[in-house]
Every structure is written in C-alpha cells, then in structure tokens.
C-alpha cells in the first residue's frame, strides 16, 4: 500500500512544483500585458484610475466595448514618436556593434589564458555587473562634463582651448550604453570561444593558413552563437533604456524609453504611455521569437 500512496503524494507534489511558479508568472508577468493593451485603447480622464473603462455592462453577461485606436493614430500622426522609435533602434544597434568590436578581442584574450589568470580576468568582467548600474552611469557625468576630468586633461595637455561639449550629447549616450552593457557581450562570447575545438585551428595552421584566415574561417563562424546571444542581451534592453539617455543624453537624444517615462510621469497620460509600450513590445517580439527558435535549434544540435 505504501507505494501507490507515495506516487499520489509525488504527483500532487509535482503539480504544486509546476503550478506555483507558473501561476505567479501568469498573474504578474503575462496578465499585465493584456491589461496594458486594454488601457492603451481607452481614453485619458481626470480621476482614479486616470483612464476610461472600455467595457460597459448592459445587463446580464452582455457588454459593449468602447475602445478606440485614437492613441495609436496619434502615435503615427506625431513624428516625435516615430523619430524616437527609429532613433532608439539606431542607438541600440550601433552600441551593440561597438560592444561587439570591443568585447570580441577581450573574450578571445580571456579564452586564451588558463587557470587563475583566466578566473581573475573573468571576475573583472563580472564585477561591474554586481556594482550599481546607476552609479556607473553617474560616474560618466564627472568625466564628461565641461569642467570634468576628460576636458581638464585635454586642456592641460594643450590639445584644446575651449572645453568640448561631451555631456548631454548623442556621443555620451553611445558611450554610456556601450560601457554599461559590455559585460553582457563579453560573457556569452567567452562561453562559446572557450568551448571551441582548438584542433581545427592547429590543423589550419599546419595546412599553412595565416592566422587572419584561420580566424575568419574557423574561430568567427564557431563563435556565432555567442555573437547572437551577446548582441541580443545588449540590443533588446538598450532599446528601452531610460537612465542613460536621461542622465547623459541631451534634449535632442530622443529614445523611446524616455518618451514613455515622460508621457507617464510628466504628462500623466496613461493610455498614451500604454500605447507607446505596446508598440515597443511589438517591435521586440520579432527578434525575441527568432532568438528563442535559434536557441532551441542549437540545443537540439547539441543533443
């Protein structure tokens, strides 16, 4: 009799193990996106909550839906929003590329070291991630501003007479994003480079391939999964970045995360802010779905 009892207990236990996190994520992560869509087709009003109800009950189970797409047509009609979306994509894409250019040689270098040196170099890449992101962005204010360290050094060296305008420029935003997200690029790259089969490189060298050619035809293709993973980890969060354009960017550096923030906190227009968020989400879904497919295929390949 003991065995069936324990299997019943085991089955109940298994269901619990599965349902508790599944319930939490459905309630607090999936459901909110439906509410977001609902609020995005309502209208702004003064009161609590600051939007109109779109379902109107007409007795029993029947109800009218009074939603409108006015917020979305406003997003299209005002070029501010389109400019902000395009600018965010441009800034995120270019910063991802810069991260790749700086991060690849770093990851390659780390993967060629061994033992304690390798551990030490890896810890140095991870360490900034454990310190405050906000404070690391703030550090650049002291470096970039007109009376900041970089201008002081350049003036002292006699390279410039007048301080350069560095803070509150697009340049500062690119710098900030590259700086903050660099570890996210280096770590996945390192993970693929470390697993790489070195016998292939040796064979290429034996057959007379120059290092540059061996790199292009062996190392680079093999590290492709790392390039994709690193780029996703940089590009997607960077699209919606708020802190960096707010602290380092100027009024001309439009990014959609900042537009959403202002729409919400300054204009208090929740429905419009929701519409901005829905469009941002739609833009992100395509690369995300592609990435998940890609990962599943890679997992299957590895067995």
């Amino acid at each position: 009799m003991k065995k069936p009892l324990s299997t019943i207990g085991g089955r109940l236990g298994r269901i619990g193990v599965l349902l508790i996190p599944a319930f939490w994520m459905s309630l607090f992560f999936v459901l909110p996106f439906f509410i977001l869509v609902k609020i995005s087709i309502s209208e702004v009003r003064v009161g609590v909550p600051p939007y109109t109800e779109i379902f109107e009950w007409v007795g029993g189970l029947a109800f009218h839906i009074k939603g409108s797409l006015a917020n979305y047509s406003f997003l299209i009609s005002d070029t501010l929003y389109l400019d902000a979306y395009l600018n965010s994509i441009k800034i995120a894409a270019l910063s991802t590329l810069i991260c790749l250019l700086i991060g690849y040689p770093m990851a390659l270098g780390i993967s060629r070291t061994v033992g304690r040196t390798r551990n030490f170099l890896l810890v140095l890449v991870i360490l900034p991630f454990w310190t405050s992101f906000l404070i690391r962005v703030y550090a650049w204010i002291g470096l970039l501003k007109n009376e900041g360290l970089i201008n002081a050094v350049l003036q002292w060296a006699g390279i410039i007479d007048q301080p350069l305008e560095l803070l509150h420029t697009p340049f500062a935003v690119y710098l900030g994003i590259t700086y903050s997200y660099l570890p996210f690029m280096v770590l996945p790259l390192y993970a693929t480079l470390e697993r790489m089969d070195h016998a292939l490189l040796e064979a290429a060298a034996d057959l007379g391939a120059r290092p540059a050619r061996a790199f292009l035809s062996i190392t680079l293709p093999q590290s492709f999964p790392g390039i994709v993973a690193g780029s996703m980890l940089v590009f997607i969060p960077a699209i919606g970045e708020f802190v960096i354009p707010d602290l380092l960017g100027g009024p001309s550096t439009l990014m959609i995360g900042k537009v959403l923030w202002n729409e919400f906190f300054l204009n208090r227009d929740w429905p419009l802010a929701s519409a901005v968020a829905v469009v941002m989400l739609v833009l992100l879904i395509a690369p995300l779905v592609w990435w998940q497919r890609h990962q599943q295929i890679m997992e299957e390949k590895q067995g």
Partner: peptide, 16 residues
C-alpha cells in the same frame, strides 16, 4: 524578463 526593457516591466506591473 531577462531581456525585457525595464520601462516595459515597470509600466505593465503598475497597470496590473
């Protein structure tokens, strides 16, 4: 949530 922009997570949570 690993790759969701924070503004998206923030606004959806508040709406919920």
């Amino acid at each position: 949530p690993l790759v969701m922009p924070e503004v998206l997570l923030g606004i959806t949570m508040l709406m919920l």
